[in-house]
């Protein structure tokens, strides 16, 4: 399936990825060719094949419900670009 400039722009917006016009245009070609390659999957009959998400047929193990983590705010926020009063700062969010 070929891809158009609008598809790239849409994906970029969904992925919150800023793209210049030139970048967007260059990805149209690359991604179209990658998708074309992916289209070779369509030739396989998978009607009776269940999708495989994990290579091992194992199941989820469960964690005991106990508090094991203590407050490490100061340590975690040392790598944060903008904090104040223990809060992460972002441009004003309007609800």
């Amino acid at each position: 399936m070929a891809l158009e400039l609008d598809d790239v722009r849409r994906a970029a917006h969904l992925a919150r990825l800023g793209l210049s016009d030139e970048e967007a245009a260059s990805y149209v070609d690359d991604l179209s060719r990658i998708l074309e390659m992916a289209d070779s999957l369509q030739a396989v009959d998978t009607e009776h094949v269940a999708p495989l998400s994990h290579s091992l047929d194992t199941t989820q193990h469960l964690r005991v419900d106990e508090v094991t983590e203590q407050d490490q705010r100061e340590r975690f926020q040392r790598c944060a670009p903008a904090v104040e009063d223990g809060l992460y700062l972002v441009p004003r969010v309007v609800e």
Binding site: D65, E66, E69, D71, Q72, R73, F76, Y88
Partner: peptide, 26 residues
């Protein structure tokens, strides 16, 4: 629950901001 759905941080209400957000929650 005492702890979060995917981490061992406390779910108690009303703590100081981000003191109950562990690496997984963040």
């Amino acid at each position: 629950t005492q702890s979060k759905i995917f981490s061992g941080a406390s779910t108690a209400f009303g703590a100081a901001p981000n003191t109950q957000a562990c690496a997984v929650d963040l």
